[in-house]
């Protein structure tokens, strides 16, 4: 464990807590893409298949349970909570995410570390996570101005993967046998997808204006 990875995990945890806070406190999920939340639930379930077979550390196990639990709770809330579900922007959240699922799965069948069920699903979850934010970014662009908690959620989510890139550089430099190309390349793509959002987020923060994404 290094400081970059810990910072990344904490930032990731904050992004999830910000989202849960927004939904719980305001009893509203306006501006939040259910499709992105469902993709993230799939990412965590398919990535942590080794939850009960490989014990890495208490921290690792607890964080896996938190991520799986919170992502499923958010999806449940947005789908079935009688108050929250009314504020879901169903007509704006129309990203055809089956494409993302299909492409990620085919890519995982081709590119993986070992051809085992667990490794193929792990690679699938890495590829899927890189593109899971797309429905959310599209929804933010369609709904124009971003209410600040939704914007903060995307900001922290993007920042966590940026910290992980620093973690991979650090591990590459310190551990002679560290070769996680699948994670590294996919993480770079993922962070690049956030780049334009970060730009507009920074501009709005600098001008202390509401975040306006170009339609």
């Amino acid at each position: 464990m290094n400081i970059f990875r810990l910072a990344g995990d904490m930032t990731h945890l904050i992004s999830v807590l910000v989202l849960l806070l927004k939904i719980y406190a305001t009893k509203s999920c306006s501006g939040i893409s259910l499709k992105t939340q469902e993709l993230y639930a799939i990412v965590f379930v398919t990535r942590y298949l080794d939850l009960f077979t490989d014990f890495i550390s208490l921290y690792n196990t607890v964080m896996k349970l938190v991520f799986i639990g919170s992502s499923l709770a958010i999806v449940w809330c947005m789908r079935y909570h009688r108050v929250v579900r009314r504020s879901y922007d169903r007509e704006l959240d129309t990203f055809r995410y089956w494409i993302l699922l299909g492409v990620s799965f085919i890519l995982a069948l081709v590119l993986h570390e070992k051809f085992t069920l667990q490794e193929v699903f792990w690679a699938f979850s890495i590829y899927l996570e890189a593109v899971a934010i797309l429905p959310q970014l599209v929804l933010l662009q369609r709904s124009g101005n971003v209410d600040n908690l939704a914007g903060q959620y995307v900001f922290f989510l993007g920042a966590y993967r940026a910290f992980y890139i620093l973690n991979w550089i650090y591990r590459y430099l310190t551990e002679q046998r560290f070769t996680r190309w699948i994670s590294c390349v996919s993480g770079l793509v993922q962070t690049a997808l956030y780049a334009d959002f970060f730009y507009y987020y920074f501009i709005s923060w600098k001008n202390n204006a509401k975040l306006q994404l170009p339609a």
Partner: peptide, 10 residues
């Protein structure tokens, strides 16, 4: 050492 292919990152 733990065999490398165990994914120790979240």
């Amino acid at each position: 050492t733990r065999d490398q292919n165990v994914h120790d990152e979240l």
